[in-house]
Computed example of a mutant assay.
Amino acid sequence: MCLSMKKICYLVMCVFLTLCIGEQASAASFRDVPEDHFAYDAITWAERYDIINGYADGTFRPSDTITEQQFAKLLANFYELESPEDELIKHTTIANWSDDYYNRLASYGVPLNGYFDYGIRATAVKRGVVAQAIAHLANGKSGLDASIQFLLDYYISTGQNPQYENRHLQKFFGATNNLTRAQVILMLHRMHERNFYAISEDAQSTHDSLESLLIRAKHAQLQLDASLHLTTPTKSAWEGVYAYYYKWGQSLDDINRREAVIANVTTKGFTVAMTANDGAADGHVEGTATMTSKTKAILTQTSNGQRCVIELEQLPQALKITEVDCRSFRDEGVTFSGTLKKQ
């Protein structure tokens, strides 16, 4: 059994079959990636292990600026991340080829901007976002500076502006600059050479958590450095993350927690995901709430069409939640009711 690790499987096959001619056969098939290209070996490797594919015209376009959704695909493929059971509720219900990759990355809490917006996904990804996303999976939750330093320490990437070396880390790295498709592949190839395939404890614990995909994606967005944030403009005071947390004992279950994430706000309603924990009892519900007034809304059914009635009221920097009837979505001993502060 190959343990789903295509890289190891290939090496084992090569040793046992002694197919050295395989190296010749595995040359990059893209007509715009000649053997003297600086990223030729990396692109050849990535194509061999199905991390990348090219365009219909037989090109890879290595010098093109890489978008966030293209990077999301590469990163999810490199780590062979598992797909979660649920899916993100986005600003539009239209399907997009990148949906599965963003669902997988959200499941592990990877810092990215485009979880809910196709327009943001299609914009150029900044070097700082790439640094934080890679460092999160390989080394755990990190701020921008720590993420950049991780890449530099292991020579996964190098700085762009030598005049700032030892003076200004983010400017030295070029955190707000764009990358090409070839540059990102080169980073991942160096990750491969240094055997950075193990997923960090932070990322794995996020994947194993009971929080909804929407909540994990929102937290992942907030993990990005403020200088890298790209969000869909909203004038609604409803939108945001709301939470209440109280620890009353030493056990892991000795907590009272309420959390709600409101997104995709229109004049008619918004999507909402809510989680509640009281000790070992918990519950989760996700759906679309309908506005009943400027400051009030009501959820009457979940995203899969099941009955669940919860009233929501907007307060100054807070959200009041009153469960009316949502028993099938929670354990006995916990309700979704409470007043949560905006984070």
Rank of each mutant, 00 (worst) to 15 (best):
M1F: 02
M1I: 00
C2Q: 01
K6Y: 04
C9D: 10
L19M: 14
L19P: 10
G22P: 12
Q24I: 15
R31I: 15
Y40D: 09
Y40H: 15
I43R: 14
I43H: 14
T44H: 11
W45T: 07
E47R: 12
I51C: 01
G54L: 07
A56H: 14
S63D: 13
S63F: 13
Q69M: 09
F71H: 03
N77M: 02
N77G: 11
F78Q: 01
E85I: 04
W97P: 15
D99K: 08
D100R: 12
L112G: 00
G114Y: 01
G119L: 02
R121E: 13
A122R: 09
G128Y: 03
L137H: 02
K141I: 04
G143N: 11
D145N: 05
I148W: 03
F150C: 03
Y155P: 00
R167D: 09
H168D: 07
F172T: 00
A175S: 04
I185V: 13
L186M: 13
L188G: 01
I199Y: 02
S212F: 00
S212I: 00
L213F: 01
I215T: 10
A220W: 03
Q221C: 08
Q221A: 03
L222W: 08
H229V: 12
L230K: 06
T232C: 05
T234G: 12
A243R: 12
Y244P: 02
Y245F: 14
I255G: 10
I255N: 13
N256F: 11
N256G: 06
N256E: 11
E259N: 11
A263W: 12
F270P: 07
V272N: 09
V272A: 08
A273Y: 05
T275L: 14
N277L: 06
D278T: 08
T288N: 15
T295P: 00
K296F: 09
A297L: 10
T300P: 02
K320W: 06
T322C: 03
T322S: 11
E323I: 02
S337E: 07
K341H: 05
